[in-house]
Simulated scan of single mutants.
Amino acid sequence: MRHVSDEERRARLGVRHAIAPGARVGSPEEAARGVGVLHATEPATVYLSCWARVESVGVGDVDRALYEERGLVKQLAMRRTLFVFPRDLLPAVWPSASARVAGAERARMAKDVVRAGVAEDGDAWLDRARAEVLAVLADAPGGRTALEIREAVPMIGVKVAGGPGETWSAPRVLTHLGATADIVRGVNTGRWNSSRPRWTLTRHWLGDVPPPLGAAEGYRELVRRWLRAFGPGTESDLVWWLGSTKAAVRTALADLAAVPVSLDGGGTGWLLPDDLAEAPDPGPWVALLPVLDPTVMGWQGRDFHLGPHRDQIFDSRGNAGTTAWVDGRVVGCWLQDAAGVVSVLLLEPVSATARRALDDEAARLTSWLGGRVESGYVAPAAKAARQSL
C-alpha cells in the first residue's frame, strides 16, 4: 500500500488549492473548481477565498462570476451550509447533499408548524407556502427580496417556535425552496460583504436548467471532486464533509475504484486511481485565508495542517476563524485593527523569511480590503488578542 506522509499532503494542499503563489489561478471559477466548492456562510469569505487563489482579482470579478456570467451559483447543501458551486456541479448536489438537507428541513418545519398551532397538517402548510412563493416569483424574472416576498405571501410571515431559543419565519421557507433547487439567491442588493439577495426562480436564473443526476450518481461526483482536491482523505473526512452516511461514501468510493493509502498516524486515506503520483514540491509559500475557508474546513481530521492549534483557530461549534499559513501548515491567524490594517498573530515561531512574507501578504490584503470587514466567526486567538488591546 502506498504511503502518503503529512508532508506530501501539505504539498498537495498548496498546489491543488492554488494557495501556493506559483499555483494561483486566473479566475474565480478556477478557484472554486480547485477546492470543489467555496464556503458562502459569510458573503465575504467567497471574495477572500478567491483573493487568496486568483493571481489578480477584484470584487467586480467575483460579482461577474456570480451574478452576470453565473458560472458560480450559491446553493444550500452539505451540513446545511451555504456554498458557491461551479455551475456544472449543481446536477450532482441537488439530488444528493441538498436533497438530504431539504428532507431534514421539511420534517423539522412541518413538526414546528403543528406544535405552534399554525396548522394541523404541517406538510400541507409547507406545500401551500412553497406554492404561493413560487407563484409570486414566476412573474418576477429579476427576483424579489425576502421582504417583498413576505409582503406578497402573508402566510409565511408567521413566527414559529423551533428548537430551544429558536424562532423562524419567512426566510426559513425560502431556505427550503433553495435547498430543493426551486429558487436561488440571485443578485445581491447589498455590498459585497453582506447578503441581501433577490430570490429568483432557478429556471429564470440559469435559463436551461440541467437535469439532476440520480442520488448515487450525485454523491459519486461530489466524492470524486473532493478526492481530486482534498485526497488523500479518510472515510470519516468524507462522511463529515458530505454530511452523509458511511453507506453513501463507501458506495461512491467503490464506484470510483478509489485506492487506499496509508497515512502518518496509521489511518487509511483514499485517492483516485489516476492520482497516485507524488505531488510536486511547491517550494516555500505563505497564505492568509478567511474565516470558513474551504481549505481549513475540508477535512474532519485536520492535524496534518493544523497541528496543536485547533482550540485557538476553531470555535466550540467547529467554525474556523482566519488562518495564516506557512508551507501548508497553520501557524497563526490574522486580524484587523480599527483602521482596517491587517496584522498576523503567530501561534508558533516561523523563520524571518516566512515572517516577512506573511507581513507582505498582510499589507497586500489591507490594500485590497480598503477598510474593516466584520465577521461573526472570530478565531479564539484573535478574540483574545483583541480583548487585550
Results as ranks from 00 to 15, higher is better:
Gly376Thr: 03
Arg364Pro: 00
Leu345Pro: 03
Asp337Trp: 08
Ala352Gln: 09
Ala324His: 01
Gly376His: 03
Gly370Cys: 06
Ala352Ile: 04
Val378Thr: 11
Asp337Gln: 07
Leu345Gly: 11
Leu346Phe: 09
Asn319Thr: 14
Val342Cys: 15
Gly328Asp: 05
Arg329Met: 03
Glu361Cys: 05
Thr366Asp: 08
Ser343Ile: 01
Thr322Ile: 02
Pro380Phe: 03
Arg356Thr: 09
Thr366His: 07
Leu369Lys: 05
Ser351Thr: 08
Trp368Ala: 09
Gly332Asn: 02
Val378Glu: 01
Gly340Tyr: 13
Gly370Thr: 05
Glu374Ser: 02
Glu361Leu: 06
Lys383Val: 09
Asp360Ala: 13
Val331Arg: 01
Leu365Asn: 02
Trp334Phe: 10
Arg364Glu: 08
Trp325Cys: 01
Leu345Met: 12
Val373Gln: 08
Lys383Trp: 12
Val330Gln: 07
Gly340Cys: 14
Leu369Met: 04
Pro380Cys: 05
Thr366Tyr: 06
Ala352Ser: 09
Leu345Glu: 15
Val373Ala: 05
Ala357Ile: 03
Ala379Thr: 06
Ser375Asn: 08
Tyr377His: 10
Val344Thr: 12
Ala384Tyr: 13
Ala385Val: 04
Gln336Val: 13
Leu365Glu: 02
Gln336Pro: 08
Ala339Asp: 11
Tyr377Phe: 13
Ala324Thr: 01
Ala320Asn: 07
Ser367Asp: 10
Asp337Val: 07
Ala339Tyr: 08
Glu361Met: 02
Arg364Met: 02
Leu335Met: 14
Leu345Thr: 11
Ala354Trp: 01
Gly318Asp: 07
Leu335Glu: 14
Glu348Arg: 13
Ala339Gly: 13
Ala379Arg: 09
Gly340Ile: 08
Thr366Trp: 05
Leu347Ile: 10
Ser375Phe: 03
Tyr377Lys: 12
Glu361Pro: 00
Gly376Arg: 05
Ala338Thr: 11
Glu374Phe: 00
Ala385Lys: 14
Asn319Asp: 11
Ala357Asn: 01
Trp368Leu: 07
Gly376Ile: 01
Asp359Met: 04
Thr323Pro: 05
Lys383Phe: 15
Ala338Gln: 12
Leu365Gln: 02
Ala363Trp: 13
Ala352Asp: 12
Pro380Gly: 11
Thr322Asn: 04
Val330Ile: 15
Trp325Met: 03
Ala363Gln: 11
Trp325Phe: 05
Trp368Ser: 10
Leu335Val: 11
Leu347Phe: 10
Trp325Tyr: 04
Ala354Cys: 02
Arg364Ala: 14
Asp327Phe: 04
Ala363Arg: 08
Arg329Asn: 02
Glu374Cys: 00
Arg317Ala: 12
Gly376Ser: 07
Gly321Asn: 12
Leu345Ile: 10
Ala362Ile: 06
Ala320Gly: 10
Val341Tyr: 09
Ala382His: 04
Gly321Ser: 15
Asp359Ile: 07
Val330Arg: 09
Trp334Arg: 06
Gln336Trp: 14
Gly318Ile: 15
Asn319Met: 14
Ser343Leu: 07
Leu365Lys: 03
Thr353Phe: 14
Gly318Ala: 13
Gly371Tyr: 12
Glu374Asn: 00
Arg317Val: 05
Trp368Phe: 15
Tyr377Glu: 10
Ala362Pro: 02
Ala382Gln: 06
Val326Gly: 08
Trp368Thr: 07
Asn319Cys: 04
Leu335Tyr: 12
Asp337Asn: 12
Ser375Thr: 15
Gly321Ala: 12
Lys383Asn: 08
Ala384Cys: 14
Leu346His: 06
